[in-house]
Design a protein around this nucleic acid. Structure first.
Lengths: 238, 238
DNA sequence: ACTAAAAATTGGTCTGACAATATTATATAT
DNA sequence: ATATATAATATTGTCAGACCAATTTTTAGT
């Protein structure tokens, strides 16, 4: 006996999913209320609620207490949530994660250069200059760094690849320790960004990838120095 | 008023998550029953159930009707579920997905060769030979192809990178149309696998990547010929 | 010791009730 | 007439109790 009998909740989830597809809802649209779904699906409120919660969990719906049910904004929170739990519970090596980022961004360079999807490097340059300004003004430059790398990934003109890179980056920013870099190192990163942009413009893939690799070296070294420090005491649910 | 008051369900989810971490459960271990959780968390069964369902949805727990709650096997089903919905609802371009696979596998070659993580290419060869046998015996060779590419990704010795590649492949096998390839094409693929292995052994990254790129060309061309055929009629929930 | 029936456990679903929150309608003041 | 405060309504959150269905455990009989 392997077959799992399908529960009403699972059925409800499926129906609601299909309904959302067919109705061509847009994010933030108001969805049906629990009451309406009870009438429509002919099941108890319990079942409807459990289905809605499941759909909220995977980021399809948003339930506002007292305010109704809405179509969720397409985000990756639910995916990164899962990965976070994975990380906490089963452990993931930081070194691996950074290496993954590195490889993914080097791959992005290939897409950009081979497919020639980046006609205009102005935006990248602007973002990097914002990064530079933030450094000089002692602001936190990290958001700009993030934007720079995001723009680079977007320049692949492959939204799927970009999607996965975002998952990885989300995951990374959750996992990664918050390193305070020295101004000297930040300026170095700025220069490397600049060099990468210029190399993209020349169309030299091999060179661009090498520069990207260099760009990742500092963080790589940093991580390899870190010790794994797993120490917790909490035990019961509280 | 931006702050969302935290619901009891969300609290329960958090507590349970932490409890699982602390108790060092293993997959398939029996977890606490609803009743026990009610007693432990001091909330109603409704809240416990909704929390459990949420945790089941993201693949942390498995609820067996009448049989109790269990720690789920770490799988990516929940993630691919989310992506599937994304695909159905917002659409994802097949061409992009294949390009993503291509880039990811080319990146894998870099990791393998640069880090020299693949001391022994025997397993890859064996899997490829199984692929060959399946072709000759008119079996479905796809599973062996899948195994070959999986082994390649594992050879990066980066479980995180492997994890992401699995997400992509799961996603791909869901999305992708089931193409029946001719024996001629299958044998071609076999030969390309073989060539890739040999090039890995020589340590020539550039060459290996080129061969991988060639290996993806057929499926690439196939997809670009396909027309988008969105045609459905269903409207209401049923 | 093995098997089959009975009992207990556990999850699945339903109903009704009330509380907490958000939205909408109404009344009031300017 | 418009803006604001208040009341009414709608909606989700939580609880309790009941019964059904599936599973597991116990018991009884051979």
């Amino acid at each position: 006996m392997v077959i799992q009998k399908i529960s009403l909740v699972d059925l409800a989830i499926d129906r609601i999913k299909n309904y959302i597809k067919d109705q061509e809802y847009k994010p933030n649209d108001r969805f049906l209320s629990e009451k309406e779904l009870v009438a429509k699906l002919q099941v108890s409120r319990t079942v409807v609620r459990e289905a809605l919660i499941s759909l909220q969990t995977i980021g399809i719906l948003t339930i506002k207490s007292g305010g109704g049910v809405y179509i969720a904004e397409p985000k990756l929170d639910s995916i990164t949530d899962i990965l976070k739990f994975h990380y906490d519970t089963y452990g993931i090596k930081l070194k691996e994660l950074i290496e993954t980022r590195e490889i993914v961004e080097m791959g992005a360079l290939r897409l950009i250069i081979e497919n020639n999807t980046l006609a205009d490097t102005t935006e990248l340059t602007n973002l990097n200059e914002s990064y530079y300004q933030a450094i000089l003004e002692k602001d936190d430059p990290k958001p700009y760094d993030r934007l720079f790398h995001q723009a680079l990934m977007k320049a692949t003109d492959n939204s799927t690849y970009y999607l996965f890179s975002e998952i990885i980056n989300e995951y990374f920013s959750f996992v990664c320790i918050d390193v305070k870099e020295k101004e000297e190192e930040l300026l170095q990163a700025y220069a490397e960004h600049k060099a990468i942009i210029e190399t993209i413009e020349t169309g030299n893939l091999h060179e661009a990838q090498n520069k990207m690799k260099k760009h990742f070296e500092p963080i790589f070294k940093l991580v390899q120095q870190l010790k794994e420090t797993p120490e917790d005491g909490a035990d019961s649910i509280i």
